[in-house]
């Protein structure tokens, strides 16, 4: 099962960002993650962790912070594994 650290590692890798603890609640868009990088990030998360975001989750993560993203991914993974 993936952890928040795994999600953060993918995020940092795709977005070429170092997320400090003070940045974790800042919207990723504010940290310079463009919408297209976000698309690439979401694609990578799905491929890496083997699940699919629901439409609602995708709408939520578009303006998410790193913490929000971790929460959504872990919850989605959980729901996906139980489905």
């Amino acid at each position: 099962m993936a952890s928040a650290d795994d999600v953060l590692k993918t995020l940092q890798d795709v977005c070429d960002l170092r997320i400090s603890s003070s940045d974790r609640d800042v919207p990723l868009l504010t940290l310079g993650v463009t919408s297209y990088t976000m698309v690439r990030l979401l694609m990578r998360l799905e491929d890496e962790f083997g699940f699919e975001f629901s439409a609602d989750e995708l709408t939520r993560v578009v303006s998410a912070s790193a913490s929000d993203l971790c929460e959504v991914v872990l919850r989605a993974l959980d729901a996906y594994s139980q489905s």
């Binding site: 919408s35 698309v39 979401l42 694609m43 799905e46 699919e52 975001f53 439409a55 995708l58 709408t59 578009v62």
Partner: peptide, 11 residues
């Protein structure tokens, strides 16, 4: 389509 989901190529 809702824009955010459809931007994912698979969708």
């Amino acid at each position: 389509n809702r824009q955010e989901p459809v931007l994912l190529p698979r969708r």
